[in-house]
Nucleic acid binder design. Structure first.
Length: 112
DNA sequence: TATGTGACATCAA
DNA sequence: CTTGATGCCACAT
């Protein structure tokens, strides 16, 4: 309800919320889109707070290698993988298959 | 006010 | 080729 977002996190949520179904993105890509290419860690941190923002599909956000790094932060174990598989993404051993194929770049979002 | 932290990324040896 | 170490920025205490 505040008019001033004043939260870098809010921006991350917005980007993540724009991720199409069946697609995934990386922390660095989001960070770069926000203008802070070196703050990839902050993106992950924002996800930490995303637990309050259910509108944020954090399960669609993975690290650079397509590895479900934050699966341990979800409710239970394997929930993140379940959600991804539910969208048609193949995940084996916390590793997304065809990661490059389903990778969604926010920078290309409105462009092209 | 200062210190610590973190679901990453990138460079170096 | 692999493994290690550092940088990073914004938020929390």
């Amino acid at each position: 309800m505040s008019k001033t977002d004043s939260s870098f996190f809010e921006r991350v949520y917005e980007v993540v919320a724009q991720i199409p179904e069946g697609r995934v993105t990386s922390y660095g890509a989001i960070a770069r889109f926000l203008g802070t290419p070196k703050s990839a860690r902050m993106v992950g941190w924002a996800m930490n707070a995303s637990h309050n923002r259910l509108e944020v599909p954090a399960h669609r956000v993975v690290n650079r290698m397509g590895l479900l790094t934050g699966k341990y932060h979800f409710e239970g174990t394997g929930l993140m993988q379940q959600l991804l598989e539910n969208e048609g993404i193949k995940v084996i051993a916390n590793q997304i298959q065809d990661f490059e194929n389903i990778f969604w770049d926010p920078n290309k979002m409105g462009l092209k």
